[in-house]
Amino acid sequence: MSGYSADTRIRWTEWLPWVAAGAFFFLLPEYLSLGARILIFILFALSLDLILGYAGIITLGHSAFFGLGAYTAGIVSTQLAINEPFVQLAAAAAVAALLGVATGAVILRTRALTLLMLTLAITAILLEVANKATWLTGGADGLSGVKVDPILGFFRFDLYGRTAFLYCLIALFLGWWVVRRLIYSPFGAMLTGIRENTTRMHAIGAPVYWRLVLVYTISATMAGIAGALLTQTNQFVGLNVLGLEPSGDILVMLILGGVGRLYGAFIGPVVYLIAQDYLAKQYPEYWYFGIGTLLIAVVLFAPGGILGMVDKLRDKWLSLYKQKSSARASAR
């Protein structure tokens, strides 16, 4: 856990995701485009974890930033003919951050249902705009014709998705590094304080509202970058990046993985997207049924998600082990 009592050294288990990603790259070259997609959604889930898991902001509208980032990156290419990938990323980040400040400053004074509705309405509005402003966004057909120059003028986005995968992996690594620093910092500890007890945070003189706007903006920026990555790897933007559905999806992924645990954001998208890729095309009904049941089960029985269960099992095993060894000791 984060905070003043935390041990912030990187544990060996924290290297596992990166080792796994490396192995994936070499062992499963035919699945690299799915892999890139997973990496992007991990980054997106990470941004959501920052506000939901740490600061406790409940939102159904996080897709607003993801989608806006995706469209911005695309439009920068189609309208302004700027195909430099880093400029596209920066533009997406900036626009998403702007939306984050603007909407955060307005809606973060509210709570609970009202906040939920406001976040939902904002992403719904964006969806409506994207749907209607056909000249800009391609409307329901999606925005095609997005061009992305080779990265650093050298690494071309290839057909097999090798460049895309590595590009997303680096972006995710940077994102993970930033988020990890953030949550272990005094700022992160302060966010946990807001989540735990807002009244108390007010009473120790924390400008809670501004802090929330700040973290909301940081998270929005990250989500925007994730959206832009999706555009760049697909060279296409569809309407499905905005609205309730992607917001719900990412929320579900994070919850399945485990919220407020940093690595829940890694596990959730992996499990969700692979299962989706496998099931959704052939048996969409079973996919919905399965994911729905799983979600209900997690909410009712395992609020910590998959990682929470792993923790619990480990604790149980450790205490069993201790019991045994102490029993052995006393037997002697």
Partner: peptide, 10 residues
């Protein structure tokens, strides 16, 4: 110091 974002709290 509550808004410091980089150095770990600990």
């Amino acid at each position: 110091d509550a808004q410091r974002m980089w150095r770990p709290a600990s």
